[in-house]
Design a protein around this nucleic acid. Structure first.
Lengths: 338, 338
DNA sequence: GCGTACAACTTATGCGCAAAAGTAACCGCC
DNA sequence: GGCGGTTACTTTTGCGCATAAGTTGTACGC
């Protein structure tokens, strides 16, 4: 790789002059030499050594994208098309702004932060749970952080979060079920934290507003680990007659459940109505097509990246951004209101 | 961030000694000082500045993962869970080996290569089409490159490819169809290059070996662009009665087609049998569950990364690695042999 | 008791770049 | 005609690290 020094030597001038041309410092260089340098640069296809530049400038032009997953959920997470769409949105946005994306997948916040400070990453986008330990570590690290779908109260004090109005999303879809005559409505999820909690809250609120009492037994807990999911699904299917509808916390679970239900001869939506959340390919291609809450994942990625870019420029940003959702009515809800 | 220099100063020794401890050069440092330094390093939570290290060593510890997609296929590609699983496999492998992953998505090989040389990336994993132009550019760049699913004859002369025995995969599944009495078998794809060509070849070979003549009209071309796919699907569904089975080049297309078929009241597998290729979530969760050819995408990613790592160590690797596939019989093929 | 070998260091150099500080020539101006 | 200001440069410095080369001090063999 050719260096500025070498170019300067061949052109018989100083490295600073070459550097100034590269940085477009018009006022420092005469038109004549500028053209000469520019032509030469083109000829040799000069590419700067970013390590040297970063070292000299104490910046990196890197944005870290850290996927922090609990080890047991890791596999499901990376399988989820959600993640790649998110990554696509982020990558596109930062590339246009002249940044590069370093991807990091781990279950250990401290490890992620070590990585981040090693590379002197300019900013971080964090997807996944941010635990208290994580917050403490990242606090020390003085670069901007934007979280995606992270609803830690503690974390919100320090970092921007880009998420959805999840509560409103389930609120609407549960209302849709209620409008179709459903009253025995279950909620299916694998945990009650973060996003799942917000969605559960919307569900409870809709029930409450319709005068339906929420019982603990309405909560169907699914165990996502691959060695437990079959058993878990079996239990849920057996209990399905207790309800006329099940609100699933994600399309992935909704479709997984529908497959399990159909395998047992339980028909959707005739025997039971199912709704999801996310509106991804899985539900769109399933038949019957899934009624769900739509979110635009790519926009989520773009928004997170944009927000981080703004912070990098020193602009203030709100510390909580909630993207809208909307109901998508398809074919998995039966009108039982008569 | 604390530097070696600062540590040396505080410990009242030279930077070389500190550096030697960091690099575990046992023979150079006495046990006494080594322990002293190690303790201090732990205390201040020292993290090396990679830019400086890379500059000094002329390496980068970065492995580039470039996703090169035709602009019109881009959206589908990044939507595909395939990609995130692949990325997951690669990331995990290189991280364990002390490398970092820089992700780059583009449709322009020259742009990718510029990126790669800017960062002085140690090696590159390329997923997607490698056109002749791309080969020329990457040739110049003297770092190891491993391609995934890239069947360019020209490219194979220069780079290792990690792929599947695609031909064998479709050969087997078409034989499965033939064994079930099918003779009017279509092949559905959106192009006839690379992977798609290999799968088509296996399909043709199976037909030939069974004494069935392949006709041009057996090839169902689907247009993947979102504004054309509906129209495309409609045409294919209308022609579906010409065949008793359709071999789809991917699970994504198989499931997309099944949805379109079901929407028109055409039943799978009663009216027509459908098979796919990949064995991903989409086909697993669909009902009827898709009969398909299994490939292990994560292993593909791991293999690509391992191969690159070997090349980085100077080891020789075969320039063509074909991972095995196997048939997964589920519920979308009807036995019509009587 | 002299040379050699080796352990345990330190000093000095350079990676490629950006930028602060320095220089030299020229121009205008009261 | 000396002085400030400008243009178009060059020289120098340092970012943080790795490492080649140099410097002690000491043990050991003969």
């Amino acid at each position: 790789m050719i260096t500025i020094k070498e170019i300067a030597k061949q052109l018989n001038m100083s490295t600073t002059t070459v550097s100034n041309v590269i940085h477009g410092k018009v006022s420092e260089v005469s038109d004549d030499t500028r053209e000469k340098v520019e032509e030469f640069l083109r000829k040799v296809d000069y590419v700067p050594n970013i390590n040297a530049r970063n070292l000299a400038q104490n910046e990196s032009k890197i944005i870290g994208f850290a996927l922090k997953a609990r080890a047991d959920k890791y596999e499901n997470l990376i399988m989820d098309p959600f993640v790649s769409v998110l990554i696509g949105g982020v990558e596109e946005t930062i590339r246009k702004a002249g940044y590069f994306m370093m991807l990091y997948i781990s279950s250990d916040t401290a490890e992620i932060m070590r990585h981040v400070s090693t590379w002197n990453v300019d900013g971080l986008i964090l997807f996944g749970m941010l635990d208290d330990d994580g917050i403490r570590v990242s606090e020390k690290y003085k670069k901007p952080i934007v979280c995606i779908d992270t609803y830690s109260l503690e974390g919100l004090k320090h970092f921007t979060n880009v998420g959805l109005d999840d509560e409103q999303g389930t609120y609407e879809i549960v209302n849709h079920l209620i409008a179709n005559g459903h009253r025995k409505i279950a909620f299916l999820s694998d945990n009650t934290k973060g996003v799942d909690l917000a969605r559960l809250t919307g569900y409870k609120k809709a029930l409450e507003d319709a005068g339906i009492k929420y019982k603990e037994s309405n909560f169907l807990k699914i165990r996502p680990r691959s060695d437990e999911i079959e058993e878990s699904l079996k239990e849920i299917c057996e209990r399905s007659k207790e309800f006329t509808a099940i609100v699933c916390v994600s399309d992935l679970y909704a479709v997984t459940l529908m497959a399990a239900l159909q395998d047992r001869g339980i028909s959707v939506p005739d025997d039971i109505s199912i709704v999801g959340f996310d509106d991804n390919m899985l539900g769109q291609l399933h038949r019957p097509a899934l009624t769900t809450v739509h979110q635009d994942v790519k926009v989520k990625g773009i928004t997170a990246a944009d927000t981080l870019l703004k912070q990098l420029k020193g602009e203030k940003t709100p510390n909580q951004i909630k993207l809208p959702t909307h109901l998508v009515v398809r074919d998995t809800v039966k009108d039982i209101s008569r």
